[in-house]
Simulated assay, not measured.
Amino acid sequence: MFGPVNSILSLIFWLISVTAFVMSVWALVHAVRIPARAFAAAGKQTKQLWLIILGFATLFTFAAAVNYGGIGTGLPNIFTIAAIIASGIYLADVKPAVTMYRSGGSEGPYGPW
């Protein structure tokens, strides 16, 4: 069902797809661990919206990484590219903003006490 990697180009696309899947999972796990009030305090979209976006991003990148039953060419499609962009926006913009609201009062201005 899943054919062997016959060329260097298909290997590169497969590695990109696996990397995109790992990035989406990382963003989704981070979003799950952050409290909902941190998103509002940072002025970002709601936690529920980000969980939906990142859930679909993880699904689409997983399908690209395993080539979903051998259907298709294995190349990233528009949904995979949109998933990579959504995960990248979360990791580059939202994650740094909400991470500082994660823990309670045990952190000072220069790190944990």
Rank of each mutant, 00 (worst) to 15 (best):
M1N: 09
M1A: 11
G3I: 06
P4V: 05
V5M: 09
N6L: 13
N6S: 14
S10H: 13
S10D: 15
L11K: 11
L11P: 12
I12M: 14
I12N: 14
F13H: 09
L15C: 15
L15F: 14
I16H: 12
S17W: 00
S17D: 07
V18R: 02
T19M: 11
F21E: 00
V22Y: 08
M23H: 08
M23R: 04
S24A: 15
S24E: 11
S24F: 07
W26N: 03
W26I: 00
V29N: 07
A31E: 03
V32A: 10
V32D: 08
I34S: 04
I34T: 08
P35W: 09
P35H: 11
R37E: 15
R37K: 11
R37P: 12
R37M: 11
A38P: 02
F39V: 09
F39Q: 00
F39C: 06
A40N: 05
A40W: 03
A41I: 09
A41P: 13
A42V: 10
A42Q: 04
A42E: 02
A42S: 12
A42G: 10
A42K: 05
G43Y: 10
K44Q: 06
K44F: 01
K47L: 05
K47Q: 12
K47C: 04
K47Y: 08
L49P: 14
L49W: 12
W50I: 12
W50L: 11
W50P: 06
W50F: 14
L51A: 05
I53R: 02
I53C: 02
I53E: 02
L54H: 04
G55E: 00
G55S: 01
F56Q: 06
A57E: 02
A57Y: 04
T58E: 07
T58K: 03
L59R: 03
F60G: 02
T61D: 08
T61A: 09
F62K: 01
F62W: 10
A63S: 13
A64I: 01
A64D: 00
A64H: 01
A65F: 02
V66D: 06
N67D: 13
N67I: 10
N67W: 11
Y68W: 12
G69N: 14
G70A: 07
I71M: 07
I71F: 13
G72V: 14
T73D: 15
T73K: 08
G74M: 00
L75F: 14
P76S: 10
N77S: 13
I78V: 02
I78E: 04
F79V: 07
T80M: 02
T80K: 03
T80A: 06
I81C: 07
A82I: 05
A82V: 06
A83N: 06
I84Q: 00
I84Y: 01
I85K: 05
A86N: 10
G88M: 05
G88S: 07
Y90K: 01
L91W: 01
D93S: 13
D93G: 11
D93A: 11
V94M: 04
K95C: 09
K95M: 12
K95D: 05
K95V: 08
P96G: 11
P96W: 04
A97S: 07
T99I: 03
T99W: 00
M100T: 14
Y101N: 03
S103Q: 04
S103I: 03
S103G: 06
S103V: 06
G104M: 12
G104N: 15
G105M: 06
G105S: 10
S106D: 15
G108H: 10
G108C: 13
Y110L: 08
Y110N: 07
G111A: 07
G111E: 08
P112K: 06
W113I: 15
W113V: 14
W113K: 13
